[in-house]
Design a protein around this nucleic acid. Structure first.
Lengths: 349, 349
DNA sequence: ACTCCACATGGGAGCGCTCCCAGCCTGCTC
DNA sequence: GAGCAGGCTGGGAGCGCTCCCATGTGGAGT
């Protein structure tokens, strides 16, 4: 009656103490019976479990976190507009991998958005309070201070993507990235092998390492071509379908003799394909197209697209595994992992 | 050295006790200085804040949750495949509204996935441990026991969508839904007003109330038409673009004289539009099309689409407000809110 | 029969925080 | 100049849990 905390329904929620009393044992025994059951007699075990069930006991996670020093959950932080977050299948796929791995380890995954500067500041303060045992951050733009700041607070961080600059040396910060440079190079070399000489690129955002890396891969191959890497042969996109279409139109406008396009992801390839078709170009006869990603379940995006596959689900799993390793304080084989990509040739080249 | 909890970096993270000592005051005073600052002298206030900054103090959220009985964060639970979650802009939009409202109230939002039965069971156990002060659940299929179960555990629940059956009477469970029945009716009546008599429907999943409600809205209007509501005039979709296209093809196959289509969301309308075009039908001359949703920022999905607008962002905000009201134990004006929709006429009718 | 040990148990300590309350010291009123 | 109200303060209690350790208990070994 006088418990201000009993706002829920009515009576006090059962505590371990109450379960123990109900079962006729002590708190310690009840605790052991409910977790693992080491050094607990069969009789006590059953009594406790029955009592817990009868009372509808649910352990208070805050209390457990307090004494254990960990919460049993980790965060997937996305620094991306929700527009993109929910429209680019890349995030879903990473999340799927992370999720799969964590479920296997009985760790709860929570997604948190950190888009605006205010939200990012808030995220830092929050995570420093240790509601999460570690965080995975995907989609890092520019020289984002957030990952380093969180890691410096002592919360293990894994970045999905590349890490540049001083952040590389923060011990509590690891990363998993695809070999974007090599992947892009393979894609463009494939176009060259198909006899293309006028190869354009529609890049990702250039404030992201991934955007710059794939651009650089393209440039390194194209610069060896007769025409070279003309500035007008690469246009900046933002990974959206619309930007892919727009990019293709701009490439065609500047280079009507365009015969190959490498886009920084498959979604933009879809946009480009549409724009090329509208411009009357046949694919692959007139213009060959290569994308990047090859996410499972997205065949519908651009059927028959030749693309560079990065094993995104497996990368998500690896991010989760890496984070769990750091949380447990075990040594890491490699702090900054780079996973290889494979070219998947289909009908657009 | 002997603290097993110091796995992070090196030394023990600062506690309020240490801040108090550093500032030369007691724990109580330090606590008051850091929260609100009632009954704290200017001198103490400054000393504590300086000490906290010097030590890099971050309050331990688990300890605070334990004593306060609340965590300051709420969950957005999505019982949807991540495929759909990340491909349907609806979720992003709800999330946006919820997020906006919560930020204004200084509450942390976390998203959690509960897709498979195992995950849903896990979600129930987890949320019963009160890591969240309340949850918003969107995308409820069938007679999903999860919302009721969580509410019964004493955790306030708001459902984004309609609630049917016994769950309606659970006090700790509220909902916010669009007036799908009226909205669908308006859409179909508009088609009738445009002189259409052969009006098909591509529904949402019929295991969802929203799918059934919009279907019922269509049926109630169409059944008054000369042709009536032939079973072959409605096909079940799943809110995806592909299912919209497939639905339109099936409608055309069964009814070549089709002159109107109402789809249960805009994404399916896009698919239908594509299929109609492929089949050589002109829109709106031959076939008029009305969608549902009209989400902000999705003009690109189906330009010029006539559709039924539901105020999804505002609905998200309302879900958040409702949940916060319940968490604070204040009475609710209406437990099951239904918000009106508006028809937006554009070029496809 | 006696020792010994493994298992089982209860209860104290303590995680880091907020609340409460008694006590203090001002400064003001009469 | 005594009395009193109020602002500040310190420290105890306690949130619900897990760990640790001292203390039983039984059965196996000699």
């Amino acid at each position: 009656m006088e418990d201000s905390r009993a706002a829920d329904g009515g009576r006090q929620r059962p505590t371990l103490e109450m379960v123990a009393a109900e079962a006729g044992v002590s708190r310690g025994t009840a605790s052991r019976a409910l977790n693992g059951g080491h050094n607990v007699s069969r009789r006590a075990m059953e009594a406790v479990q029955a009592a817990a069930a009868r009372l509808g006991y649910r352990p208070n996670l805050a209390a457990r976190s307090l004494v254990l020093g960990r919460s049993g959950s980790i965060g997937l932080v996305v620094s991306e507009s929700d527009e993109r977050l929910f429209s680019d299948p890349y995030f879903a796929t990473v999340a799927r991998g992370v999720h799969a791995e964590l479920m296997a380890h009985d760790v709860q995954l929570v997604l948190a958005l950190a888009q605006t500067p205010a939200e990012r500041e808030r995220m830092l303060r929050w995570s420093a309070g240790r509601p999460l045992d570690g965080v995975i951050i995907i989609s890092v733009h520019g020289a984002d201070p957030l990952p380093g700041a969180i890691a410096t607070e002592g919360v293990p961080v894994v970045i999905g993507g590349a890490v540049e600059g001083p952040d590389r040396d923060i011990p509590g910060l690891a990363s998993v990235d695809a070999d974007n440079l090599a992947g892009a190079r393979t894609a463009v070399e494939h176009l060259v092998a198909r006899g293309r000489t006028r190869i354009g690129h529609i890049s990702g955002p250039l404030d992201m390492v991934v955007g710059r890396d794939r651009l650089e891969g393209w440039r390194s191959v194209v610069s060896g071509l007769p025409g070279g890497a003309l500035p007008t042969l690469s246009v900046e996109g933002d990974f959206s379908e619309a930007s892919g279409a727009e990019g293709a139109r701009r490439l065609l406008a500047a280079h009507p003799d365009l015969d190959g396009v490498f886009t920084s992801n498959d979604v933009m390839a879809r946009g480009a394909l549409g724009a090329l078709q509208q411009a009357g170009r046949r694919v692959p006869q007139d213009v060959a197209v290569v994308g990047f990603d090859d996410l499972p379940g997205t065949e519908g995006i651009a059927p028959g697209l030749t693309t560079v596959r990065q094993p995104v689900i497996e990368m998500g799993r690896q991010m989760a595994r890496t984070l769990l390793t750091m949380i447990e304080g075990r040594p890491l084989a490699e702090r900054h992992a780079v996973v290889p990509t494979t070219l998947v040739v289909r009908e657009t080249t």
